[in-house]
Design a protein around this nucleic acid. Structure first.
Ligand SMILES: [Zn+2]
Ligand SMILES: [Zn+2]
Length: 515
DNA sequence: CCATGCGGGAGCA
DNA sequence: TGCTCCCGCATGG
C-alpha cells in the first residue's frame, strides 16, 4: 500500500494486543515510522475519508482511503494499471479502464464471495510449477497459470510437466503471501473510478499470463488426446497485458543455493533454521498452523515441517532464484520497509521452496519436486482463504492486518484504549471475506442482476455504504486447525507467540539477528 | 471449456 | 446471530 491515509503514510506500529500475545503498545512493524500521535480510537474509522473534500491526486502515494470506506474520494487523476500488484497498496484506475473494469490481474485471482456486492474480493491461486522444478530450454522454470475454475484447476494439477523430457507433474504452488494465506485483491467501482486494493505479497513466481495460459490449455488438451505425448512449454512472450507497469518477470539471476541472502520468515519472527528459537519447533505462525493440521487444510506444502524432512533437506534445492524487478518500485512509504527485504534478509533458509517478494525484489527458492509436496486436498486447495476468517489468529497476527494495513476500525476485541499503543490512525481492515449478508445486501435494494463492474458501481452510487469492518470474531481465541476440520487443536495464542513477543518488542524483527 | 461474478446455504462459533 | 466457505448457476468469450 502505498497508500496513504494519514495512517498509512505512517508506518506506524500496529496496535496489537491480544491476538499476538504481544505486549500491547510496541509493535515495531515499522520502526522508522514517523511519529504520529493521534490516539487510536479517536478516529471513527478512518482518516480523511469521512466524506470530506479529499481528492486523490492519482498518485498512489496520495491514496488516503480504504476499500471499505463509506466514502471514497472523487478523483480526476488515476493511476496507471498495474498488472502485477503485490504488496499492500491502493490504486485508483479510470472507470473506463478496460483492465480495471475487468479486474484484470497477472496473478491468477479467483473470485471470493464476501457477500458484499459492492466490493469484489479475489484471492490468489498461486502458480503451477513442475514438481521436479525443471528448467525450460529458455532457462526459465515452469510457471503455469492456474485455472480460475476449480474444475479446470483440478484437471491441471498432476498433469505431466509441459517441459519436454521432464517427468515431473504440475503442482500447485499456493499463494500464501498474506501472512500465510492467499493475497487478496479488492475491487470497487465508485465515482467513475475503479478502486483497487491489494493485501499481501505474493510469495511465489508469477504465473504465465492469461493468453499464454490459454495456449497452454489447448496444448494440454492436445496432449491428452495424444495420450501422454509431452507438450512443449509455453512461449514466454507476454501478450495479454493491455496496460502494465510490469517489468520483465522473467529476469532472474540464478545463484547457487547456498548464496541466498534472504529468508521469508514471517514478519513477526524469523523461523529460519538458523534461528535457535524456532528451528525444528512448532511455528506459531501460519506455517506451524499448517503443519499441525492433519487435514493439511491450508497450504501445507510450504511448511518446513510438513514433510517431516529435516530443514536442510527441505531447503535444498537446485538453486535459488533472485528475481530483481525494480521497474515498479513502490513509492516510499510502508512498502519499502516491508517483508522480504529488510525483515527477512540474513535469513538464509526457511521455505522448502520458493519465496518471492514482488515488486522490489523477488526471491524465490525452489526445492526439488519432492519437497514441494503440494497437496492440499482439492477441497482445501480451492477453498477460500482462511485469512478471511477473523477467528483465525493468522489474521490477527498478520502484519498486513495489524500493521501494514490501514485499519478501518478497531476489532471489537482489541483494546482501543489509548496508551496501549500510542499510535495514530491505526486502522484495521480485516480483509475478511464475507460481509454479513444481513448487514449488507445490495441485492435487497437492487435487481439481482449478475452484472459485473457496472453493478458494483451502480450500487455504490445508489447505496449509502455502511460497511462493517471490524472483526467481530474471537480473534484471540484458540483456533481450530481448520475452519471445518473439526480437529480442534488447543491453540493457545499466548503461548504460541511467547517466542514471538520478544522480537516484537525489539527491532530484531527488522533485522533478524537470529537468522 | 473456462473465466468471472453472484449468491444460497451449510457449517461453525 | 454472525461469519466464512462450499458449491452451483448464469453469462459471456
Ligand atoms: Zn518439469
Ligand atoms: Zn499469490
Amino acid at each position: 500500500m502505498i497508500a496513504s491515509s494519514e495512517s498509512s503514510l505512517v508506518p506506524a506500529p500496529s496496535q496489537c494486543s491480544g491476538p499476538h500475545g504481544m505486549t500491547p503498545g510496541l509493535c515495531p512493524d515499522y520502526p522508522h515510522s514517523p511519529s504520529a500521535s493521534k490516539p487510536v480510537g479517536q478516529h471513527m474509522g478512518h482518516t480523511g475519508t469521512q466524506g470530506n473534500s479529499m481528492t486523490s491526486r492519482g498518485s498512489h502515494q496520495s491514496h488516503q482511503w480504504d476499500i471499505n470506506d463509506s466514502t471514497l474520494p472523487v478523483t480526476e487523476a488515476h493511476d496507471s494499471f498495474e498488472l502485477w500488484p503485490s504488496g499492500h497498496y491502493r490504486r485508483v484506475y479510470r472507470g473506463d479502464s478496460d483492465d480495471a473494469r475487468r479486474h484484470v490481474s497477472g496473478w491468477a485471482m479467483r473470485n471470493t464471495n464476501n457477500h458484499n456486492a459492492l466490493i469484489l474480493k479475489k484471492s490468489c491461486l498461486g502458480v503451477l510449477v513442475c514438481s521436479l522444478d525443471c528448467l525450460l530450454d529458455s532457462g526459465r522454470k515452469v510457471h503455469l497459470r492456474p485455472a480460475i475454475c476449480d474444475k479446470a484447476r483440478r484437471k491441471q494439477i498432476g498433469k505431466p510437466c509441459p517441459n519436454p523430457g521432464c517427468q515431473g507433474k504440475l503442482t500447485l504452488l499456493s499463494c500464501r503471501g498474506h501472512c500465510g494465506y492467499p493475497v487478496t485483491h479488492f475491487w470497487r467501482h465508485v465515482n467513475n473510478s475503479v478502486f483497487f486494493q491489494a493485501k499481501g505479497y505474493h510469495d511465489h513466481p508469477r504465473p504465465e499470463v492469461k493468453s499464454l495460459s490459454d495456449k497452454g490449455r489447448h496444448a494440454f488438451s492436445k496432449q491428452l488426446r495424444q495420450d501422454g505425448e509431452r507438450i512443449f512449454s509455453m512461449p514466454t512472450k507476454r501478450r495479454f497485458p493491455v496496460h502494465t507497469s510490469d517489468d520483465d518477470p522473467e529476469r532472474k539471476i540464478y545463484i547457487p543455493s547456498g548464496e541466498e541472502v534472504m529468508c521469508s520468515c514471517p514478519p513477526f519472527e524469523c523461523v529460519c533454521p538458523k534461528s535457535a528459537q524456532t528451528k525444528n519447533t512448532f511455528m506459531p505462525s501460519a506455517f506451524g498452523f499448517i503443519r499441525d493440521s492433519p487435514s493439511h487444510t491450508y497450504l501445507p506444502h510450504r511448511s518446513p515441517s510438513v514433510s517431516g524432512l529435516g530443514m536442510e533437506q527441505l531447503t535444498h534445492g537446485p538453486f535459488t532464484q533472485i528475481n530483481i524487478t525494480n521497474t515498479c518500485l513502490p513509492a516510499p512509504g510502508l512498502e519499502v520497509s516491508i517483508p522480504g527485504i529488510d525483515i527477512y534478509k540474513n535469513c538464509s533458509k526457511f521455505a522448502p521452496h520458493s519465496y518471492y517478494h514482488d515488486n522490489d525484489m523477488k526471491i524465490f527458492r525452489y526445492g526439488s519436486g519432492e519437497v514441494i509436496n503440494n497437496p492440499l486436498p482439492h477441497g482445501q486447495h480451492f477453498g477460500r482463504s482462511p485469512m478471511d476468517d477473523l477467528r483465525s489468529p493468522q489474521v490477527a497476527n498478520c502484519p498486513s492486518s495489524a500493521g501494514l494495513q490501514h485499519m478501518n476500525s478497531m476489532p471489537r476485541n482489541f483494546s482501543s484504549s489509548a496508551g496501549t499503543c500510542n499510535q495514530p490512525n491505526i486502522y484495521i481492515n480485516d480483509g475478511r471475506d464475507d460481509y454479513s449478508r444481513y448487514r449488507i445486501n445490495p441485492s435487497h435494494c437492487y435487481n439481482k442482476g449478475r452484472g459485473m463492474a457496472g453493478s458494483l458501481e451502480d450500487r455504490s452510487h445508489a447505496l449509502g455504504l455502511s460497511l462493517k469492518t471490524e472483526p467481530t470474531e474471537h480473534v484471540f481465541r484458540d483456533m481450530p486447525s481448520s475452519p471445518h476440520g473439526g480437529q480442534t487443536r488447543n491453540y493457545h495464542p499466548e503461548s504460541m507467540y511467547n517466542s514471538v513477543s520478544p522480537s516484537f518488542n525489539s527491532h530484531s524483527m527488522l533485522s533478524p539477528k537470529n537468522c
